[in-house]
Structures are given as C-alpha cells and as structure tokens.
Design a protein around this nucleic acid. Sequence first.
DNA 1: CATGAATGAGAATTCATTCAT
DNA 2: TATGAATGAATTCTCATTCAT
Lengths: 214, 214, 214, 214
Amino acid sequence: MNEANPQEIVRKRPKQARAKSTVDSILAAATQILTDEGEDRLNTNAIARRAGFSIGTLYQYFPDKEAILVELIVRQRAEMEQRIVSLIESRPEEPAEETARRIVHLLVGLFRSGRQARKSLFTVMLRLFATQSLPQNLSPVSYYIIIAWRKARGDNLAPLSDADAFVLTRAVRGVLRQAVMEDSPLLDTPEFEEALALLVISFMQRAEQKASPP
Amino acid sequence: MNEANPQEIVRKRPKQARAKSTVDSILAAATQILTDEGEDRLNTNAIARRAGFSIGTLYQYFPDKEAILVELIVRQRAEMEQRIVSLIESRPEEPAEETARRIVHLLVGLFRSGRQARKSLFTVMLRLFATQSLPQNLSPVSYYIIIAWRKARGDNLAPLSDADAFVLTRAVRGVLRQAVMEDSPLLDTPEFEEALALLVISFMQRAEQKASPP
Amino acid sequence: MNEANPQEIVRKRPKQARAKSTVDSILAAATQILTDEGEDRLNTNAIARRAGFSIGTLYQYFPDKEAILVELIVRQRAEMEQRIVSLIESRPEEPAEETARRIVHLLVGLFRSGRQARKSLFTVMLRLFATQSLPQNLSPVSYYIIIAWRKARGDNLAPLSDADAFVLTRAVRGVLRQAVMEDSPLLDTPEFEEALALLVISFMQRAEQKASPP
Amino acid sequence: MNEANPQEIVRKRPKQARAKSTVDSILAAATQILTDEGEDRLNTNAIARRAGFSIGTLYQYFPDKEAILVELIVRQRAEMEQRIVSLIESRPEEPAEETARRIVHLLVGLFRSGRQARKSLFTVMLRLFATQSLPQNLSPVSYYIIIAWRKARGDNLAPLSDADAFVLTRAVRGVLRQAVMEDSPLLDTPEFEEALALLVISFMQRAEQKASPP
DNA sequence: CATGAATGAGAATTCATTCAT
DNA sequence: TATGAATGAATTCTCATTCAT
C-alpha cells in the first residue's frame, strides 16, 4: 500500500496512452524550440507553453529540465542506430566498401536534415557530457554498428581494435557534427560525401592490412 | 613577437602594458574556473573575483561575457596553430607520413593535458558556433596547416580538395574532442595515437592516388 | 470507546467504516512523512501516495491540507490527555507529589518516543497557532488535567489560580518540547526527569502555601 | 590575488557603513512583514521590496532566505541575553530572589511588546531547530545567564546541575512563548508575572536544598 | 581608470487544488 | 466514490550589466 520509494518523487511513467502522447508533445516542443530559437531560448516554461501544457504537467513527466534533454538525445541516438543497423543487416553479402558508402550516405542525409535542431542538440549533448550526467550507455552505440557489420558479413573482415573503432566512429561523427555546426555548404555536396566515405574505407583497408599482413 | 623587454614596454606604454596584464589575468581566471568548477560556474562576477579585479574593471576590457569566451578560444586556437605550423616548418624535407605522425603526436599531447578546461571550452565553443557569433576567421585554421604543409614540401604533394581538407581536419579534431569529452582512457594509450595517425595517413595516400592516378 | 467488534461494524456501516480507515491511513501516512522526511516534504500528493490513495480521494475526506494537520494534532492531544487523566484517576489516594512524579514520568516517556515526528508536529502546531486557525478547544487540555487532579483527590488540594495553572502546564510542556527540539541528550537521563518533577512539585507546594498561609 | 575560497560565493560582509545599513534594512523589513502579515507572507521578494532594495541586493548580503531568519534570531537572542546579563551585573549584592523577580519582569516586558513578530519568529525558530540548521551557539544563551548570575553573587549560590539549568531556562522560555502564541490575556496581568517568578524562585530554592542539605 | 553596490528580468521548480472521466 | 492528469500562481535564486562615486 505504501510506496516503496519514499525519497524519490516518482514521476509518472508514460504507461497510459495519454501520458505517452504528453511526453511526445513535450519532446516535440523542445525540438521545435531548439530548431526555431536556439538553445538559450530553451526554457521549461517555453517548452510547456509550446507543447500546450502547463508547466506543472511538464514536471509530472520529467524530474527536471536536463531529463528532457537527455531523453531527446537518447531517442535521437536510438533512431540513428536502428537505421544504420537495419541498413547493414539488409544486405549481408554486399562488399564492405559498398556498405560503408551507404552508411555514410545515410548519415550525411540525416545530418543534412534538421540541421538547426541538431546544432543545438550537439551543444546540449556536449554540455551533458561535460557534466558527466549523460548515461553511460549512450556512447557505445557505434560499437554495435561495427559489431553488426562484422556479424552481417560473417567475420571475414579483420576485427577492428578498440582504438581503431573509437577513432573511426568518432571521426565520422566529428566531421558531420562540425559540418553542421559550421553551417558548411560542403555538407550538401557530393564531394563531401565522397571524401567522408573515402575516410572510412581507406582507414578500414589499412587497419585490415595492419591486422593481417600477407 | 611584438615585445622584447617587458620593463621597457611598461615605461613606454604603461597603460597598454597594464591593460594587457589585466586582460591576461581575466582570461587566466576564466580558464581556471572552467578547469576547477566547470562551465556553469563561469560567470562574470566569479571571473572578476578570481582575477583580483572588480566586476567594473572587467567590463572595461571586455564588452560582454561572450567576448571573454571568444578571446579565450581565439588564443587557444592561435597557440595550437602556431605550434603545428612551426612543427611543419622545422623539417621540410621529412616524408609526409612522418610529419603527419608528429602532428598527431603533438595534438594528442595537447589534448591530454588540461582536459578539464578543454572540456568546458569545447562546450563553450560549440555554443558560440551554434549562436553564429564566433568570428568567421576562427574555423579555417586547419587550412593554414594544410597550406603550410604543402608549402614546406614544395607542393610535390598532391593538393587536397576543399572537401578532403575539411573532412581530414574535422575528423582529427572530432576524434580528439570526443576522446576528451568522454574521458576515454584510450587517450592515454599509444594505440590511440597510432590509430589516429593511421586515419590521417591512409586518407592522405588514398586522396593522393585519387587526385593523380598513374 | 465507540467500537466493540470491528467485524460487525464493517457490516453495519460499511461506508463509515471504510471512511474511517481511509482517514486513518491518511493520518498515518502524514505522520510517517513527518517522521521520515520532515515537515517540508509533507505535501498532499506525498501523503496520498504513501497512504495508497489518489490525491482526489484525500480531498474527499479533508477539505484542505490544514485540516489534516489539525486532525493530527487533535488526535495526539486527545491521546495524551486521556492517558494522563486515567493515570490520575487510577490512584486517587496517592499523595500529590507522587502523582506529579508519575505524570512527569509518563510525559517524558511519551516525548522520548517518536521524537522526530513530534518535532515536526511541534513546528506545524506552532504555525497553526500563529495563523489563529487552531480550534480554540485545543489549548485548555491542561486545565482538564488539573481539574481531574483536584477532583480525584476531593479538592483537598489548594486550588491553583488560572495564572498558576497556565504557568505550570506551559512550563512542563515547554521544557519537554524544547528538549525534543534541541535533540537534547538530557531527555534520556533520570536527572532530567527528576529536575522536571522538582519543578512541578516545588511550584505546587509554594503555590499552595501562598494560597493558604498558616 | 585570487580568492581563497573559490567554491563558496562570498557574500558581502557588512564592513562598509552602507552595507551595514542595507543589512539592517533587510532585517527590519523581514521583521515588519512577520509582524504585519505573518510567516507565510514572508518571501524574499517581499522582504526586498519592503526594504526598498531589489531582490538581487538582498542576495548579495544573504546566501539564502534561511540566513535572514537565522540572523534575525541571532540578533534577537543577543539583545535579550545582553539585557539580562547587564541586569544581573548591575546589582551583584541583591538577594537572588529579587534578581530572579527582576529578570522575570524584564522578560515578560520583552515578550509583551512585539508579540506578533515574536509569534512568527518562534515558528521560524522552531522550524530551523527541526531542520538542524540553527547554529549550535544559539541555544546555550541561558547558561551564560546562569553563570553570570553565579559570578555576580560570588558563587555562594549552590550550583545548578545541567539538568536543573536546562529545565529552569526552558520552562521560563516555554511559558512566555506559549503565552504569546496563544495570545493569552494572562500575559498582561501581574498575576502571570508573579506566577512565573514563583516558578523560578521555588525551583531554585528546592534545587539549592537538594544540592546542599543541612 | 577603478570600484562594487545595486539592479531586475528571467529561470527552474513546487504543490495545493480542481475536475473530467 | 475514486482517480490522477492537469493546472498555474507563487517562490527562490542567479547573473550579466550599469553607474554613481
């Protein structure tokens, strides 16, 4: 009868359909504000207003402002990850180079759209990283991708070391992020996409050679 | 470069010299706070207090808070750039691969030290990018490096396209930043450095092949 | 006093019985929160949650938050009063000094237990006093005790004036409250109890002398 | 040059005359609100407004709301203590009984005036006690008084034990507080004062007898 | 030039209470 | 009767910036 957890104020978990849609509205509102007005206009009152709820409602679903941002990032990452993984699994027999090219293509496309929101989200993410408050399970997404890749092609690809995997994934991410942050016109060119694909492919081939010399 | 004997300068241009040291104190204070307490403790009053000046004085040297941050970033970039350029120029005859390795080594070293301050600075930089208020001349630092590289070796290196240069420089920066932001233990390993160097070298070789096929 | 067999009552007046248990649950929950988390965690939502009811249900039984607190205090006072009265009535022939000692002993025991809840309750009570919203019939409890005392021993004790009664009762209460509020270790010592008894007895004897000089 | 205490935001300490008067204004405003409107109208904005300062100024002198209340209590206690001590020291040769009577007279007078403010202050004090945040040196005021008393009369008075001193001082305080809180009309009567004096005197005489039996 | 007291808009968060279901 | 989602006024506190001295 009594609550198990008296200390923590238990925020409503979105089990009901209504609750779910409320949470979605709030996150959508936050994204909109990030897109339209930028990070420093992003305050809880504005989010609630734009979502069409009172500020009190917002706080029934999120313990604090940060939780909203974290959820935003979590969802965005999950979506990206899931897209990439399914892309990899869709054509297991495809040559690695081709798959890499298609992943890069997908990523470039994703980063091209919704630049403004992404820009602000990057800043937010970086701050959360700096504050140590981003859940640990956020970062290693990239490893799953690499693992999926290997699995899909039956491990006949030389395994990447931890350091190699880290460098490769962060490099791709870093290039895309920076392109968005700098509003670089390159982002829209095929040359950019080609260069990024080249980065991935050349690295993987070299890493492969290194791992298994003739 | 502009200064020789500090004593003399103090006599000659007392105000400017004093101003310079005041500005330096303020920037140093800001860096300290970023290091010790993180970005959200960084407010103008705290900076002034730590610098040993009154808040009024701070505003005599900087128009607003952002100006302090911008100056911080400008100086940091300038220092890095200058180190890299002089590294490149020091051994013009060295093979490109070796130079790349040494640049990577230098960069990794720089990012390893002062991680905490750098972490906060990254966040700040990203926000300034997002707000569009970073002066345009901040970003293309990397191009200078590439130009310096080519110059130093008499252009016998195939020229990198804009897209290639962008991708390469942002990739390196992105990997290092992310390593710092994630507090990755990899940053301290030789494997990490090796992988990063590999990224650069393999990309340059492929880009070269592409540019000038046999 | 009003109840005999709980089973039977449930059958006879199901709604009232249910209501009673609901009210009791709510009050118990409030007491628990006061004990475990202190006064400023005591909010209606928390009470309802801990009681296992919805907030709406809580408002079906209490018009507002204050009503809960008042009821809490009323019950606590009633319980104390009733214990003391029955203690007095249990040994009418006992010398006044001895009865005083036993009352003090009882009170000290009551205050020793449940200190934390009592602490918060005191604060709440005091605020209600300050807001004038405590029902008037709450305070004079002490008079009943004194009256009961006199009755029990057939008025052969010199009557205490209003002022004397006020001072005596408030003194005892004040000492005990303060001991609880200060978390005084004295509260657990026999010396404390002895001193408090001395306060009561010496005052009564002097008041007696004053009232009826030889 | 750099601050010693980077973590703690150092609030201005009232060294300057202006600062001192600002602090005084703020405390006076708080007292007024307590008097005129009661505790739950006492919010920081109201205090600042009534003091004629902006809210920001208030927070330059007090780290948080509680600090204002604590300071209020500290000052009030200090004033009372100082009055009583000087009363005791003014007539060292006076019989203890007479001094007790005069102390009681003084206290009753103090509590009679400014009842409303005192009422709210009591509530506040009690809450602070409950939260453990009242500085330790607040409570033992009473001991100083007792010590002063003994000193003033050359220790020919039997020493009170800790328990006795606690009981006596808290009893007096408790009676006066309760009289104020209940708005008791007794507070204005000579009978009340007489009864309170009696409480003190009879207790001290008995305690004395107990300590040094013939 | 330097000072630092003062400003006040703005942001996050709480919680008693209502009311449609 | 019971529910619990929603409300929104109210409150605490921050911090970039100004300006009289």
